[in-house]
Computed example of a mutant assay.
Amino acid sequence: MTTWITICDTCKREDWAARGSQDTDGETLAALVESAAQGVGSLRTRRQSCLMGCKHGCNIAIQAHGKLAYTLGDFTPSAESAQAIVDYAALHAESASGQVPYRSWPEGVKGHFVTRHAPLPEEE
């Protein structure tokens, strides 16, 4: 089963304008996550313009059909953050329910969880 990493590509951290960057922080993080996830068979990435978590930028969502879903935020657009996101998403993919024991979390995702969503029901 595929676990999706959705990356907000419009996120801008508070100091974005002062840094004079051409790309948004979300675009930078998205490129780093996409690169880190390449070749990880159970993961796919996609970009979304605005996950509406601006106070927590940079934001990502981790989702898979029939599993708990998570929104994480307040990442710096760095290779270390991207790798931690991908490592956590791979653990999510391995889990039958999407729940990953805290002791298994990569250090780089601790403190970044914003919300957890129950899986959608199978029937209407």
Rank of each mutant, 00 (worst) to 15 (best):
M1C: 07
M1F: 11
T2N: 08
T2M: 13
T2Y: 13
T2W: 10
T3E: 10
T3K: 02
W4I: 11
W4N: 11
W4D: 14
I7Y: 00
I7E: 07
C8I: 07
D9V: 13
D9A: 08
T10E: 12
C11G: 04
C11W: 00
K12N: 09
E14Q: 14
E14S: 15
D15P: 00
W16E: 04
A17G: 07
A17N: 12
A18E: 14
A18S: 15
R19L: 15
G20V: 02
S21P: 00
S21M: 11
S21R: 11
S21I: 05
Q22H: 08
D23V: 01
D25N: 14
D25V: 03
D25F: 02
D25C: 12
D25H: 06
A30D: 12
A30Y: 10
A30N: 13
A31C: 07
A31D: 14
L32C: 06
L32V: 04
L32G: 01
L32S: 03
V33N: 13
V33Y: 11
E34C: 12
S35P: 03
A36Y: 00
A36D: 11
A37R: 02
Q38H: 13
V40I: 15
G41I: 12
L43R: 01
L43Q: 05
L43G: 05
R44M: 10
R44I: 06
R46N: 15
Q48C: 09
Q48T: 12
S49W: 05
S49C: 07
L51S: 01
M52W: 12
G53I: 02
G53D: 03
G53P: 04
C54V: 05
K55E: 14
H56F: 15
G57H: 11
G57T: 09
G57V: 03
C58F: 01
N59F: 01
I60L: 06
I60D: 04
A61G: 10
A61Q: 14
I62V: 15
I62T: 08
I62S: 00
Q63F: 06
Q63K: 13
K67C: 07
Y70A: 05
T71K: 07
T71S: 08
G73Y: 01
F75N: 02
F75Q: 05
F75I: 04
T76I: 10
T76R: 14
T76F: 13
S78W: 08
S78F: 02
E80Q: 14
S81E: 05
A82Y: 03
A84F: 06
A84Q: 01
A84T: 03
V86D: 04
V86W: 08
D87Y: 07
D87Q: 13
Y88P: 01
Y88W: 14
A89K: 06
A90T: 08
A90L: 10
L91N: 04
H92T: 03
E94Y: 01
S95I: 02
S95V: 02
A96V: 10
A96S: 15
S97Q: 03
Q99F: 15
Q99H: 08
V100K: 00
V100E: 02
P101R: 04
Y102G: 00
R103D: 15
R103C: 09
P106A: 11
E107M: 08
E107N: 09
G108N: 10
G108P: 06
V109N: 02
G111I: 09
G111C: 00
H112C: 00
T115A: 13
R116L: 11
H117S: 14
A118M: 13
L120F: 10
L120H: 12
L120Y: 06
P121T: 06
P121V: 06
E123W: 10
